[in-house]
Nucleic acid binder design. Structure first.
Lengths: 290, 290
DNA sequence: GTTCCGCATGAATCGATAG
DNA sequence: ACTATCGATTCATGCGGAA
């Protein structure tokens, strides 16, 4: 009997692996079993900013809309799993809206621990000039957990000392970066070879990723490197990564490329198709930068 | 009659210029006239369980302690003035405490507009390693205003574009390259002449300042460059800058060096003495990095 | 005059120990 | 069980002195 129950559980779990579900987020989550997800990484549609694609929620209603979803995410997440929420409040009537704080407060009432707030520093943020405001170059990556003890694999995201490697590469062209990186790998780059064997250190809670504005078919919620970093940090191979607002599939692609299982929920059919095609493309592994 | 009233107002205003008041913050603020300050820049003592330095306020009581002060600051600030609050929540029981959000919520109830949140990225943050957390490398610089229209002088904080890098890279060691870049990001540095004449761009809302960990005399709450940047951005010459938690006087020194008036409030006598001495030192102008 | 190298020093955080 | 104190951990930075 025990073995058949185990098999049954296994079957149910496998049903939720490497799939994209075309559904609204909350409904799909309600059908899922509890405690099966190792990591949730997502960037939900911003308040009132994507009426054309998502139907947009007004800032004043945003927390009320999001909190039931957060509650379901807590249920499906394993006790030692992590939830990374990429979000940023936009200006509204000349000031920052408070809905992100409302979400944090509401989630803490649900029993979530607000473990950390990572800053995603967008190096090439959207250009522009306003009389009373500078360019918005950062977003929050809020980390929530169900318990104080959770899985974290810090060694997988170590960086060279002082991260001056990035500074060195900043003004090079894309092709130069690739060339230099390949030199690093082979150990023959004249300047870059100094990096090899350099001491590695743990990163901080400030992340530097460039935005990927070259996706012409849609607006990318976040760059490939962002979910990739958190997937490396909070999961091991074979673990299940969920993105309840999959969009064009960036999280799932990153998960697959890293040897993790993915589960995506997306309400818009054209996004589902886009993500599905991207996941079938064997070339996606190149995106990992190996 | 009118002229005597004007003179009287002028007298009262001049009484609150270029002074350091040794007093607890709230009491001193209550004696001040309304609408006389152009910019408030401060970094209040952070919440702490210990009672060694300032008599530390417990995280759970922090918002309750701070909000009456925020109310007084709103009164003394000019309608088109700005309040910059440098603060960061600490971890408490393994998660981030919510008192900063409570402060923002409370201040909005007082009528403050939460206009912007700048990120101060501390490149040289405190080291350490923990199983569930990386080093904390950023702090909030919250911008509050009394009205949507406020004074802002964006041109005064423009930074050079990326061209500088190639010019600088030639003969420097890798370490110095990295260090120079961080100075350029903040808009300062010893070799300023090297980027005179280069194209200037507006900064973003992410600031890069190194902490000044090696100040022999006393540890400054924030680096000189931080208040300096906000003073340049939100005031013109002759304007009045208030720091209600003056500490060792960094804000007043920056204001004086930039040709602004300063007003400092500090409860600890030894800090008052320290700041007073520093303000009498003509060499402080060098700190501006011109 | 530069560049390089060694060193002390932190708005930190956790876990263990003590009352 | 709950709170206060302490040690261990760790790295970017500026300064001083040497090359």
């Amino acid at each position: 009997m025990a073995s058949s129950i185990t098999a049954d559980v296994e079957d149910r779990a496998s049903h939720w692996r490497d799939r994209i579900i075309e559904s609204d987020c909350e409904s799909a989550l309600r059908t899922m079993p509890s405690d099966i997800v190792d990591l949730v990484v997502t960037s939900p549609p911003y308040a009132d900013k994507r009426k054309s694609t998502y139907g947009g929620t007004h800032p004043d209603d945003y927390a009320e809309w999001f909190l039931p979803i957060a509650g379901e995410l807590k249920r499906v997440l394993k006790p030692d799993g992590t939830f990374i929420l990429n979000i940023k409040e936009k200006t509204y009537n000349g000031e920052r809206h408070s809905y992100v704080f409302d979400i944090i407060a509401g989630m803490r009432k649900q029993g979530w621990l607000w473990t950390e707030e990572f800053i995603w520093h967008k190096r090439n943020c959207y250009p522009g000039k306003w009389p009373n405001r500078f360019r918005d170059a950062w977003e929050r990556c809020l980390q929530f957990n169900k318990q104080k003890k959770f899985n974290m694999y810090q060694e997988s995201v170590m960086v060279p000392t002082g991260d001056w490697a990035k500074a060195r590469l900043k003004n090079l062209s894309e092709t130069d970066k690739r060339r230099d990186e390949s030199k690093v790998k082979s150990g023959f780059g004249k300047n870059v070879s100094k990096w090899v064997g350099r001491t590695m250190v743990y990163p901080s809670n400030v992340l530097h990723f460039a935005t990927e504005s070259n996706n012409r078919s849609h607006s990318a919620a976040f760059p490939f490197a962002l979910p990739e970093w958190f997937i490396k940090l909070f999961t091991k191979e074979g673990d299940l990564v969920l993105d309840p607002f999959l969009g064009s599939g960036t999280t799932a692609i990153a998960a697959k490329a890293l040897g993790r299982r993915y589960l995506g929920i997306e309400v818009k059919a054209d996004y589902v198709e886009l993500a599905t095609k991207a996941l079938q493309n064997p070339a996606l592994a190149r995106r990992v930068g190996k």
